[in-house]
Simulated scan of single mutants.
Amino acid sequence: MIRFLALLVALLALAPAGAHTRSESHTSWLVDGSSVHLTVSLPDAEARRITHDGRPPNDPQLISYLAPKVGVASGDAPCTSAIKPRAVAAASGYRRVEFLFACPSAKALVLRFAAFFELVPTHVDLAQIQTPSGDFVEQVLTSDQQTIEMDGANGSGLESAGFLTFVKMGVMHIFTGVDHMSFLLGLVLISRRFRDLAFVITGFTLGHSLTLALAVTGVIRPHAEFIDALVALTIALIGVENIAVQARRPGLLALWTGGVLVAMAALRLGGIGLLPPLLLIGAGLFSANYLMVSGHVRDAGRLRLVVTLIFGLIHGFGFAADLLNEAIPRAQLAELLVGFNLGVEIGQLTVVSVLSGSVVLLRRMKLTLPRPMVVDVCAAGLVAIGTYWFVGRSF
């Protein structure tokens, strides 16, 4: 059992600090008769993917990569480049490249974007198209759909999606979200009984369902970078709690955890870091009190229901990140929320079932080691991974 869980933790550790943030780019297409103006915008992190050493590419390198992977065709005739592609000014942390295509005809135009899919199969491009009539159309381009036919571009990429598509999106968000799976591993470790596991899963579900609905409906719009960092913090905290309960020394661990977060707030006041000082101080106070209380409660199952509800609120904003970047059809909003939430539940129950089932199977095969040893090793791994992600996303 310890080998299985330790291997799982090791695999999770290989994920980058931005594990939750998906790979994406943005394109803006202005169709003016037989001319098409294209602007490609992408984060610096995406641009680094095209170099072998991970360094930011210079402008010629970026243009050389993008040029053969973007284009326009009029029927079977490819459109020619009217000007030399050029890099233009962009917001801090982003890169922008402009293209201009001249087509032999304004009929049957087909827009193509094929960049990054060979590097990251799950990459998405969020395309906004301004038609000659002045209307704006939004589409989502993926490795399976790299072209847009202007004759059929009459709505967002989700308008034609059905309930099962939304369910699949939720399932894949869990399966491709290494940080969410890490958190679920921590919930399995902290739960000694099935009743405890039921409490924490219930709290987590209630929390993420609430904030997912609030974010998608526009009631609350979270800051994506802050949410990614807090998701990582929840992973570290669930690992620290496992160690605190096992070692029965919550006071010392609470002091260290709260102290580190307050120290980060002091650094932010000095201009170092990204997270607001008040957010870090609040997180430090919450973390210290949470660890102190959980370490002294004899039956912490019901307490963890409340705490994982709070953690679920944070993860729910993380789940919403996939949807907030897409044009959400208002007529399908209820169907999307129910389907996506159902998919998330199917994904997390699958992960929890596989982990719990593996433990039961190994126990029956008498291949298990003492629980304290397993918890210590895996919890230490979660603390290391969560801290690495949290620091990476905070600075």
Rank of each mutant, 00 (worst) to 15 (best):
M1H: 15
M1Q: 15
M1F: 11
R3P: 00
V9E: 07
L11S: 09
A15P: 01
P16T: 13
G18M: 09
H20N: 08
T21V: 09
E24V: 11
E24C: 03
S25I: 10
W29C: 04
W29K: 04
V31M: 00
S34G: 11
S35H: 12
V36M: 05
T39I: 13
D44H: 01
D44Q: 01
D44I: 00
R48A: 13
D53G: 01
G54P: 05
R55C: 02
N58F: 05
D59M: 02
L66Y: 00
K69C: 00
V70Q: 03
V70T: 04
A73L: 03
A77S: 12
A77V: 05
P78C: 11
T80Q: 07
P85K: 05
P85A: 05
R86M: 03
A89L: 03
G93D: 06
E98F: 10
L100A: 15
C103G: 05
S105R: 13
A108D: 14
L111A: 07
F113G: 14
F116P: 05
D125Y: 06
A127K: 08
I129S: 02
Q130K: 15
Q130I: 11
P132C: 06
S133V: 00
G134S: 00
Q139G: 02
Q145H: 10
S156F: 07
V167K: 13
G170P: 07
M181W: 13
F183R: 10
L185K: 12
L187V: 01
V188A: 13
I190E: 10
R195H: 08
V200C: 07
V200P: 02
G203S: 00
F204Q: 04
G207L: 07
H208N: 12
L210T: 09
V216R: 02
T217N: 10
A224S: 11
D228H: 12
A229H: 13
V231W: 01
L237E: 07
I238T: 08
A244E: 06
Q246L: 12
L252T: 15
L253N: 09
G258F: 14
G258S: 15
L261V: 11
V262T: 12
M264E: 14
A266Y: 14
L267K: 07
L269F: 14
G271Y: 07
G271T: 04
P276C: 08
L279H: 10
L280V: 04
L285A: 15
F286S: 02
S287V: 10
M292D: 01
G295T: 06
V297R: 14
A300W: 08
R304K: 13
L305R: 13
V306K: 08
F311R: 01
G318E: 00
F319T: 02
L324D: 04
L324P: 00
Q332I: 03
F340P: 08
F340C: 09
E345P: 03
G357H: 10
S358P: 04
L361R: 02
R364N: 13
M365D: 02
R371I: 01
M373P: 00
V375M: 05
C378S: 14
A379M: 02
A384I: 03
Y388K: 09
V391Y: 05
V391C: 03
R393W: 00
R393K: 07
S394V: 02
F395W: 04
